[in-house]
Amino acid sequence: MSESLFTQLLDLACGAFLLAAVVVLWRRELAAIVRLFALQGLALAAIALLLGLHEDRWDLIVVAAGIGALRAGLLPYLIRRALATLVTDRAQGQDQAAYTHSEEVRETQPLVNVAASLLTAAALTLLAYAVARPLVELDPTPATRALPVGLAVVLIGFFVLVTRRRALAQVVGFLLLDNGITATAFLAASGVPLIVELGVSFDVLLAVLVLQLLTVRVREAFGTTDIDDLRELHD
């Protein structure tokens, strides 16, 4: 692969990666958000694959395959299953179609509205580029030039965590954050060792399993997954 093709493909993957995060802020349906998350997982896998091909490192290619399977396959599947549980619980004795657009599966009232969220995402991306400038200057390769994208996704993921009400939207926010961290690690250090990535992935998987279970339980106990209704839990 030639140098310019690698650069273009990498930029394309990074662009898709960032775009997926931004669109998550735009869409309200949880199902669509999960689809976007899966798309972002693919973009992340592509980044890892491109880096592996460019540097002829087979372990990075293995890591890329693993990331793709986990973040574009397994995790979206788990979240979708949780979503389905929520829907079928509520739909017992009700018209299924009437429910699909109910508030449990839509982020109806985020704390910050969609337009402001998109503007904030732009500001956060600018901030990420500004912060990463000295890091890029250390070693300006195509990979490190794309580094701010990872940081921007970290910030956007954090922003989703802060502003979205639904528990599953929060899970996606957490996973966006983690995707951003992984991308930053790949772009800054040209890939992480297999064992580290294995550990991180396992961690994320466990976290999602726990959060999925917790969401369903919260829904059973309180009748909603709006975590702002849980404010009695402090000491």
Partner: peptide, 18 residues
Amino acid sequence: LAGGSVHAYLGYGFFGLV
């Protein structure tokens, strides 16, 4: 500061970081 809202707690972290 600890009012019980998870969003507030997350917000502290977010604004701190930014």
